[in-house]
Simulated assay, not measured.
Amino acid sequence: MATATASVNNTTGTFMFHPRPTVFEHPITYDLPSLNNSTSIINNKSDINDFSQYYITLESRTTIHKSAKGPISIAECDVQGKYIIIENTSRSKSMVLTGWIIRQESDNGDILTFTLPDNYLLRPNHSLKILTKPNESERKNHDLIASSLSSWHTGLNFVTTLINAEGKDRASLTKKTIFS
């Protein structure tokens, strides 16, 4: 661990630097308090005593947890919010998904929903992509369009749940990102 000391207007601050692998860098501004309540202006950014702006390194770890009660599961939630893919993992049984709901909740409580159309049949070993309206041009074969949605959630944390016509949770995908 390296330590550096800076002095501005007779005020000293100590900074601790922890070398870590870079994942995200975010500028952090640190204003040293002035003893005479005046604002100091440093014109030479290469001055070795200028610690008014430095970068702090953050490491992150993202986990995706999937679960399913039966052959229908959530295979993927696009990181850019373009689509969600559900799949039928059964080798022999088609599933009628009439009235099933995809519900996605962000960590701030924002909820998005999409109800599958009547008489929708998902064949064995097949998947279904549900695109948002702005991505309709990427539609292929039997993909569905969530015309009321401009995007699925793209944040650091969200839970996507697949609910059957009886209101029971049948599958979920949870994305969590932790910074350290």
Rank of each mutant, 00 (worst) to 15 (best):
M1W: 08
A4K: 09
A4F: 15
A6V: 14
S7H: 03
S7T: 15
V8R: 09
N9R: 15
N10L: 06
T11F: 03
T12M: 04
F15I: 13
F15Y: 12
F17D: 10
T22I: 11
V23Y: 10
V23S: 12
E25T: 10
H26K: 14
H26W: 04
H26Q: 05
P27T: 01
I28A: 04
T29G: 09
T29I: 00
Y30V: 15
D31E: 06
D31L: 14
L32F: 09
L32H: 09
L32K: 09
S34C: 10
L35E: 05
L35K: 12
N36C: 07
N36P: 12
S38H: 11
T39Q: 14
S40R: 07
I42K: 08
I42F: 05
N43Y: 14
N43C: 06
N44A: 06
K45L: 11
S46D: 09
D47W: 04
N49Y: 09
N49I: 03
F51I: 15
S52G: 08
Q53N: 11
Q53L: 05
I56S: 10
T57N: 14
T57V: 14
E59Q: 13
S60A: 11
T62M: 12
I64E: 13
K66A: 15
K66W: 11
K66L: 02
A68W: 00
A68M: 10
K69A: 12
G70C: 11
P71D: 05
I72H: 01
S73P: 00
S73C: 12
I74F: 02
I74V: 07
A75G: 10
E76K: 11
C77P: 00
V79M: 04
Q80W: 01
Q80K: 13
G81V: 07
G81R: 03
Y83M: 10
Y83L: 15
I86Q: 05
E87V: 04
N88W: 00
T89N: 11
R91Y: 08
R91T: 14
R91L: 07
S92I: 08
S92K: 14
S94E: 13
M95E: 07
W100H: 09
I102H: 08
E105C: 00
E105M: 05
S106W: 00
S106H: 04
N108P: 06
N108V: 09
G109T: 05
G109N: 13
D110G: 03
I111S: 05
T115K: 14
L116C: 05
D118N: 14
Y120L: 14
L121A: 03
L121R: 08
L122S: 05
R123V: 01
N125H: 13
H126F: 02
S127W: 00
L128N: 00
T132I: 07
N135L: 02
S137A: 05
E138H: 07
N141K: 09
H142R: 14
L144S: 06
L144F: 04
I145Q: 02
I145G: 02
S147Q: 08
S147M: 00
S148V: 03
S150I: 06
S151V: 01
W152P: 03
T154Q: 06
L156H: 12
L156R: 03
L156C: 04
N157V: 13
T161H: 02
I163E: 04
N164G: 04
A165E: 01
K168L: 11
D169M: 10
D169P: 12
A171V: 08
S172P: 00
S172L: 11
L173Q: 06
K176G: 10
T177Y: 02
I178T: 11
F179N: 02
